[in-house]
Design a binder for these strands. Structure first.
Lengths: 354, 354
DNA sequence: AGAAAAATGATAGACGTCTTTCAAAATTCG
DNA sequence: CGAATTTTGAAAGACGTCTATCATTTTTCT
């Protein structure tokens, strides 16, 4: 029943030092002789002491302030992320975490860098990466001031970010390819890839993964890729053209956004032409509807709920100077018509099963 | 940025009562006039008071003791669950949660009921359901004594369990069917279903889901199902017979265990016969290996890590008399060769990305 | 050895809640 | 109205950690 856990006082007694010294050791306040430190650490080891985080937070009595910076715009995916963040914010306030949400012009490294500059008023930042020397510099300076930063969804491997939270986009592309391969069942076919822009790192990674797996399958060829600029209109026009020009296309993979346009383009196919097998990204209202209606076949999702959960966990651990516990990478999740989560809909969360 | 949160003292002041009265209200210690209770609740509402759980746990100074009861045996899936539970146990001890793991003979309702009887020494229980009147009765009695119980993996809908943590097996079966449909790409085929026993609720649900989706597809027929008793040997023999007897089989879905036997049976197919498309359950060492080797095509997984996480969260909330926060259902996750999580292997967790 | 610097000890007041105790006030009832 | 009962108030100690202060001891250096 009551397994009494040792306190820091117990540790101090066992180490033969005062509480103050033990406290100096565990909280790294310096000015401790090496010998004392060693004995304290031995006592910690021997007793299995673990700091009581509840008591610590109670005593420190501080509210951690974290900011998440998202790109602005109407993008369905980031709208979803924002909703999840707002939920999380409400849930975290009682735990003394103040989660702020800000926006910055999309794909604008200068604006992002300006937003980051001199944010010493916060305990941690999460940003959707945008590549640029200004940003790296800003991140570097923040890190020097003890403000940790994690990248979300899109990484900045060259900057001094403390962690990246997002899926492995190479895996995503390979998974898309595998589904396409499965759907062809050995028959020949031709795959049309779509991305937002050639310069978008995540889209490029997805395409590379796609190619890697498809290269195993000689019966499948690749059509020239389309750059849809993540815009439904552009995607619609380009896909329409591509389908008209190349009757051999049997599958489409959209590594970027603009899915609404893709669905519209498919709807105009002549009735006698079999719809290509379609794989796309991010489970949001429109992709979900398309999946349910049988207009597309597979949606790969990066589980934004999980991503938000991890961002908070990591920022909290960094702020409390705790070690990050190892986490499994976030895997792209495969959705088909039949394993969709229940639709939250526009209404309230409602009843709770499990 | 210190956003001060109101304390119970603030609530009491605002309600015009003493701390003691406010405390009686929030902790339901009775003996409070209705008028006072109302004013306290109004003050809570107005100030947005939320109990500081850290402080409460610190003061209560108690260790919650939870027990998870698993079926015994060598089943790879439950071995995995046990590993995850042991990890969780280590992680939870510093948070004053003592997570015990016990085993009981598999599928033995009487033994389970006996194990549950009179467990008033614990603050919560999680069990893998086994149907039987003795069990329902034991659960009922525990509930009367204030010991909450949740079912894990296999539900007992008729018993007074506080919650069920596990996947929707109908969805799992439908998802399997969808993958099989996709892999046939409109061509005719014949699906061989395998289950452990006709009486296993979860297996039956999976089969029902499979049938529901396949009934949409006239080109796919169902072979008579095999009962493999979750034993690799039985599954191997029965599958071998079925494949020999019916050359038209193009897909196999194993809703139960014994996957090692299934893989062995497939290995003996004559070289000129195309391997059927194979869908099975639970990502463990042997299914993972089969997937990587291209011996099977799809593995549906119920994400035991997530299940354990939820069991703990629910038991904790119940023990602390907190409201359960609504959770999304656990969805069966689709694994193919290309979206496998990194193999933890037999070694230590090791390096931590993200 | 003596001075300066470094290390240590002792202690006290927070943090917000729980728990208990006892007296005082308010209400109900006969 | 007075007694019995219910409701309320006031307060204090505990939980484990953080933070700060100040005196004292030990070590290092010249």
């Amino acid at each position: 029943m009551d397994v009494k856990r040792p306190t820091l006082t117990d540790v101090a007694r066992r180490a033969g030092v005062s509480y103050a010294t033990a406290d100096r050791v565990v909280n790294g306040r310096g000015r401790v002789a090496e010998k004392s430190a060693r004995r304290v650490n031995e006592a910690i080891e021997a007793l299995g002491y673990v700091r009581n985080v509840a008591a610590a937070n109670l005593a420190q009595q501080r509210v951690y302030r974290f900011i998440v910076v998202l790109p602005d715009g109407q993008n369905a995916f980031f709208t979803r992320i924002r909703e999840i963040l707002e939920d999380a914010r409400a849930r975290l306030l009682p735990e003394r975490i103040d989660l702020g949400i800000e926006t910055v012009p999309a794909f604008d490294a200068v604006a992002l860098a300006r937003r980051l500059a001199g944010r010493v008023d916060v305990d941690g930042l999460a940003v959707v990466g945008a590549e640029g020397p200004e940003v790296s510099e800003a991140v570097e300076r923040l890190e020097g001031q003890g403000v940790p930063l994690v990248t979300l969804v899109s990484d900045m491997p060259r900057a001094a970010r403390a962690a990246y939270v997002g899926i492995d986009n190479g895996v995503a592309g390979r998974t898309a390819a595998r589904m396409i391969l499965m759907a062809h069942g050995g028959r020949p076919g031709r795959v049309l890839p779509i991305l937002g822009a050639e310069t978008a790192r995540d889209h490029a990674d997805r395409l590379a993964g796609l190619r890697a797996v498809l290269s195993e399958a000689p019966q499948l060829s690749l059509a020239p890729e389309i750059a849809g600029r993540d815009s439904a209109e552009t995607v619609e026009a380009r896909v329409r053209d591509a389908l008209a020009a190349d009757p051999a296309i049997t599958a489409i993979y959209n590594a970027g956004a603009g899915n609404a346009g893709l669905v519209r383009a498919l709807a105009t196919l002549p009735g006698d032409r079999t719809r290509p097998f379609v794989v796309l990204h991010e489970l949001v209202a429109n992709t979900r509807a398309a999946l349910e209606a049988g207009k597309v076949d597979v949606v790969l999702d990066q589980r934004p709920e999980e991503e938000v959960r991890r961002v908070v966990a990591i920022l909290r651990a960094l702020a409390e100077r705790r070690p990050l516990e190892p986490m499994e990478p976030i895997l792209p999740t495969i959705f088909v018509k039949d394993n969709l989560p229940p639709d939250p809909g526009p209404a309230e969360p409602g009843d709770q099963t499990q």
